[in-house]
Design a protein around this nucleic acid. Structure first.
Lengths: 211, 211
DNA sequence: CAAGCATATGACTACATAGTCATGTGACCC
DNA sequence: GGGTCACATGACTATGTAGTCATATGCTTG
């Protein structure tokens, strides 16, 4: 956590510092991001930085935490209905909010991306604690419920399906941002539906049987 | 390319240097990997290193190239049959060889992984040139042929499906390495088939219609 | 005015990095 | 012996980093 000194700062200064830090960590991954550059760009002294934050990790943890909170704000409303709606509706809502978040907060999305892809597992452990497996567990329980309710094919492999759904989430965000960037984000809707069609029905021709 | 001096070295010395370098780049991504550590671990002088390679990038390019060649050795036999066999057979063979490569060459796999995930696009561009889009183009042409032949549902979105198949390739390797590591790699076969089942048929329950 | 306290500062330490270069060493040939 | 050439060496340069610390500024309170 940042020191009290940081929270005591006037709002605009806090904002300026965080904004500069977000810029830095969205451009460079953790180890390459530079405190020296941050203080230079934010127009504060090196010493001041260390009056605000314990160290580099302290700042980064704080940013990751804020990004997570921001993302959760969008996801929570979906999760409350989770038991009442069709499985695919939930997945659809998740994909849509995921893309929306990425478009509305490209720098935070980039920071999260860099962080997820970072292979310094010690750093990840220190910063995330044990929040990583939770998302997968949630999917697994969702899939199990989906099978019970009759929404899903009971012969699928649950853990593998969870992994697929997670990866498709990443795939569709990537695909959309690469292919459709700049355009209105409402254009993602048909794309999400095409993705869900495939997830639901597969890609095998319906006209003839399996060879 | 490494300098001639490097290729003139006795085989065991070359081997020792490359081996140490592979170790380093599989543990750390490009910018964090250290030439100083490599020369220390390989037992050669710093100056010698620069008699063998132009610079850090030269060595890395060489390693990426070797890893690529190694991987291609496995893939090429599949690609020659590409027109004669069922679409899903090709995808199946690709997934299997992908996992096999990852298991047989964990360090090379790790280097390729680190590199793909690196977000220094300039470095990527310099090292890969324009080889990146090629793999996607190949998938797209495969999918189009699959539709023509009647293997695939013509209503799918081709580009999106290509992206899905690529991502599922990553997903299954990840999943397999996390879940099944240490065991015999033949255990991946049922997993690949479950994955293909989902890709073919989707995950929707077959008993009742869509809600 | 004076004391005290929160905040601000940038030179500095200690360390790591990639890459250079002048000097050695040893084998081979004339 | 003398010359040439390939390879070997590690001290050194230049640059970057995270983090420290003694000092200074300025606001608030008695």
């Amino acid at each position: 956590m940042p020191k009290q000194t940081f929270f005591n700062l006037p709002e605009d200064k806090k904002e300026r510092i965080l904004n500069t830090a977000i810029d830095e960590f969205s451009k460079y991954y953790y180890h390459k991001a530079s405190i020296s550059r941050i203080v230079k760009n934010a127009g504060i002294a090196k010493g001041s930085f260390y009056q605000y934050f314990e160290d580099k990790k302290d700042l980064f943890k704080y940013l990751i935490g804020r990004a997570g909170e921001e993302k959760m704000k969008h996801f929570n409303p979906i999760m409350t209905n989770i038991d009442n709606v069709n499985f695919f509706e939930v997945v659809r809502a998740m994909y849509i909010t995921g893309i929306r978040f990425a478009m509305e907060n490209p720098r935070l999305q980039q920071i999260a991306d860099n962080f997820i892809r970072d292979n310094d597992t010690r750093l990840k452990q220190e910063i995330l604690g044990d929040n990583i497996p939770k998302s997968n567990e949630m999917f697994i329980s969702m899939i199990n419920k989906g099978i019970e309710k009759g929404d899903l094919d009971p012969s699928i492999d649950v853990a593998l399906t969870a992994s697929i759904i997670t990866n498709l989430n990443i795939a569709i965000s990537d695909y959309f941002i690469k292919e459709v960037k700049g355009k209105d984000y409402m254009e993602m809707m048909p794309l999400v539906d095409k993705m869900l069609y495939i997830l639901k029905n597969g890609i095998k021709s319906k006209k003839e049987g399996e060879k």
